[in-house]
Simulated scan of single mutants.
Amino acid sequence: MSMILQELQHYLRGRRATTLAELAAHFHIAPDALRGMLDRLICKGRIRKRESKKCGGCHSCAPETLELYEWIDPYLS
């Protein structure tokens, strides 16, 4: 699991922010499994979960397409 956490960190560091759906597609991992790994990175202070992106309100968007995670740059804090 530590290898995947390192890969997640590298991906987020390069992208700055991405949705859970993009992470799931890139790593071929179910969104629910990724949430646990992302929670660990949040606890370590490496990333933060941002307020969900808003869509037009049709209620047909998959929740993981609206769930946004952002890399925390320690030099900007």
Rank of each mutant, 00 (worst) to 15 (best):
H59Y: 10
L66M: 04
T18R: 12
G57Q: 07
L66D: 03
R40L: 03
A21V: 02
E64P: 03
A17G: 01
R40P: 00
A62V: 01
L5H: 05
R13V: 03
L23E: 04
S52M: 06
Y75P: 00
E67P: 02
L38I: 14
R13Y: 14
I29G: 00
S52E: 06
I42Q: 13
G45N: 11
R46D: 09
C58T: 04
Q9D: 01
Q9C: 00
G57N: 11
F27R: 10
D39P: 01
R35I: 14
M3F: 09
M3Y: 11
G57C: 08
M37C: 03
I4Q: 13
A21P: 10
A62Y: 06
M3C: 09
A25S: 15
S77I: 07
L23M: 15
G45F: 13
D32G: 03
T18C: 15
Q6Y: 01
R46Q: 06
H59Q: 02
C55K: 11
H59R: 08
R48M: 05
L23K: 04
A21F: 12
S60A: 02
P74Y: 08
L8T: 01
G36M: 02
L20C: 10
G36K: 07
C55V: 13
C55W: 03
R40N: 00
C55Y: 06
A24D: 10
E7K: 11
A62P: 00
G56W: 09
D32I: 02
E70N: 00
Q9A: 02
R48E: 12
R16T: 13
E51G: 07
A21N: 08
G56H: 12
L20M: 10
A24T: 06
G14N: 08
L5P: 01
L23S: 06
H10T: 09
L66H: 05
M37N: 04
Q6T: 08
R50A: 12
E51D: 07
C61G: 02
E22Q: 15
L23A: 12
R13A: 04
A25E: 15
I47W: 07
G36S: 04
L68I: 13
H28C: 09
M1F: 13
K54S: 15
A17P: 00
G57P: 12
A17M: 14
Y11K: 06
P63Y: 11
P63T: 07
C43Q: 00
T65V: 03
E22P: 08
I42F: 06
M1P: 13
Q9S: 02
R40K: 00
A33G: 03
Y75F: 10
H59W: 02
R48K: 12
H59P: 00
A33K: 11
F27Y: 10
D39K: 02
A25N: 15
E51M: 05
A21T: 07
A24E: 07
C55D: 13
T19C: 14
S52I: 01
M37H: 05
A33Q: 14
A62K: 08
S60R: 09
E64N: 12
D32C: 01
K49S: 09
M1D: 15
R48L: 05
K54T: 08
Y11R: 09
F27A: 12
G57F: 06
M3V: 15
L66Q: 13
L38Y: 03
L34K: 04
L76R: 14
E67M: 07
R48A: 14
G56M: 03
K44N: 10
I42R: 10
